[in-house]
Design a protein around this nucleic acid. Structure first.
Lengths: 356, 356
DNA sequence: TTTAGCACTCTGAGATGATGAGTGCTAAAA
DNA sequence: TTTTAGCACTCATCATCTCAGAGTGCTAAA
């Protein structure tokens, strides 16, 4: 059954007011802020209807009404107006995004922090890989006779390195041989395909430096493993204490403890949203995790390139300012997609008038 | 003026009991737990003395006594017995330390998390460099005609890399030339010494690929910069809510906000302790930071090698179990020093009976 | 120097009652 | 049929009060 326009208008007023004040709102106040030309008694009747329909709740008999999760859902789906960010806000985000950008990890971490600061809610961010990552190439760099650097590049264009210091000496040709060997034997393989048999074959081929094979390969396995179990970056957990719904320390503690369970966030919350476009809003009991049943989550996904995607999101009370948060989050997610999509570099020449 | 033995015994009992219960303790209870064969009235007299001397405090006229910061200090300096870790505890720490260990950053982060979990207090960890870092060598790896990997190694044996994708083509000889050029021009320089003039000279020498110089060098500058402004890893902030002194949300919030100010932790707290050996304990007002004036901090430093050191620490209420925390922290710090000090690798051959 | 005794202080937990916001219902008005 | 005014009723909140209990400081005797 569709709600009448008047009911919608009242519901919307309740939600928006409650988002601001965190206090139940009564018929008289609604009469004023809705601008409807009806008496408070009429509004009371409407409120009673909305309550029967499950859109509103009453903390106690003689308090005003607050939105129920169902009420928020209707609000988000139908009543909420898309929020435009102010110029100042977009500028702020752009500036932060174009700050120094190093490794993928750091960018994601930084983006999470920014979102948290921007929204005043705790935020999390992660990169997820829908395919199983594989190794794309190996390079070994001789540093001195007893140490070398292994550089491993994956098909997601992620590059990791590690410095190995050895108890024995090592020569350039030896390293060259190893590099060729590694590249022929292990490139294109997923974590599972790096079997002990494969290792044995390669080790055999490596002759006297067979021990190094397993060292470098186990480093490569670590890299692949860390890509599959994507790291989750959280930021701004202390913001939950800003909001009156978490003045009860017990509640705050539960939520904060959940936020530090990175794997829970990754698997039950973020990864399922990896392929949804736009902002996704999960209100109270819509959340799978028990700890989030009376909080809400807003998520947005972004493109990293090479088939990789990422998710960034915030957690807050159900009384969250969904319109604003969703707008900011989408904007940041778009910004990240663009950042990753853009060629790494501006055209080779910097802004100098030099010419050879 | 030295305290009498009896006074010390009483003070110690007050501190240890208060650490356990977080509640003021009165003369009668002390009479029992100290085992002193004197009446509660005598103890009352002693308590009055200790209070006059500033070692104890009274929350209100008719409550028991609690230790003052000065009391804790005396306890920590003279009365506290060194805590031995149980076998189980040392095993737990060892296991955690020998987990998969990738990059320096991750190890430090992981160690912080572990300490937090171990002590139930929020923890932080960082690496600090007493000298100004310099670049030790550059390597460029051609990936395909339009992209290459820059590998930068610093004198702290830290290796970082970055993948560059170019809008124009690139050849192996070109890259070789660049590598040589970078290594001759910029090795051994600190961040400050990478002047625009130096850049100009090198760019000139690079001929047509002069633009790449500035790209790689600015990456190197980022690396140096990130080493100077060492990252701080914090973990377990939610633990502060476990303790009754932070049931007041306002207090908890202030402390949590402070904990997320990484630079504050680094500069005013951790780095000054970089060269102290053993555990360092800062009680309440002994802390420089305003936000920590009624909390305590326990710190321990560890060796990373190559002159680099690191600090790991926890933050908690002044009513912290100093003995236990200091013991755990020292143990972890020692473990880290050993971990970093050990040659990266076991002897080249793994545990196989193969021989060529 | 120690102890017993006692008056005194102060907190914390209940109990009590007034206040006021807000409701639901009824009956009249539109 | 919908809207409105009127009114009795409910319930949280706040301030006030009392009371018990824990713990103290002081005095005078041991």
């Amino acid at each position: 059954m569709e709600l009448t326009d008047r009911k919608k208008k009242i519901l919307r007023a309740v939600v928006e007011r409650y988002i601001q004040t965190a206090e139940p709102i009564g018929s008289k106040a609604l009469q004023e802020i809705t601008g409807l030309n009806v008496s408070s008694a009429t509004i009371r009747n409407e409120l009673a209807d909305l309550t029967d329909l499950g859109y509103l709740e009453q903390p106690h008999t003689s308090a005003g009404r607050i939105p129920s999760p169902k009420g928020y859902r209707l609000y988000v789906n139908e009543l909420m107006e898309e929020q435009r960010l102010s110029l100042e806000e977009t500028k702020q985000i752009n500036d932060a995004l174009h700050l120094k950008m190093r490794e993928l990890d750091k960018v994601i971490d930084q983006a999470g922090r920014m979102v948290s600061q921007l929204t005043n809610y705790p935020a999390f961010a992660l990169a997820g890989n829908p395919k199983r990552p594989t190794i794309k190439r190996f390079d070994l760099i001789l540093v001195d006779s007893a140490s070398f650097i292994a550089v491993v590049m994956t098909d997601g264009n992620l590059v990791k390195n590690k410095l190995f210091r050895l108890p024995t000496d090592l020569s350039e040709p030896q390293l060259q041989l190893l590099t060729t060997l590694l590249n022929t034997a292990f490139v294109g393989k997923t974590l599972d395909q790096l079997t002990p048999e494969l290792m044995r074959v390669a080790e055999h081929a490596a002759g006297s430096s067979y021990g190094l094979i397993s060292l470098v390969v186990s480093f490569a396995m670590e890299v692949l493993d860390s890509m599959e179990n994507s790291a989750v970056y959280t930021a701004g957990a202390s913001h939950i204490l800003d909001h009156p719904e978490y003045q009860d320390v017990g509640k705050a503690q539960k939520l904060m403890a959940y936020l530090s369970e990175e794997q829970a966030i990754a698997h039950s919350l973020a990864l399922p949203a990896l392929n949804d476009d736009g902002a996704k809003i999960l209100i109270g009991p819509e959340n799978v995790a028990e700890e989030l049943k009376d909080s809400s989550v807003v998520l947005a996904s972004y493109d990293i390139g090479d088939g990789m995607k990422g998710v960034i999101g915030v957690v807050g009370p159900t009384r969250m300012d969904y319109a604003k948060v969703a707008a900011k989050l989408s904007y940041v997610a778009d910004g990240l997609s663009k950042l990753f999509g853009a060629p790494e570099l501006p055209p080779a020449g910097p802004d100098k008038e030099k010419e050879e």
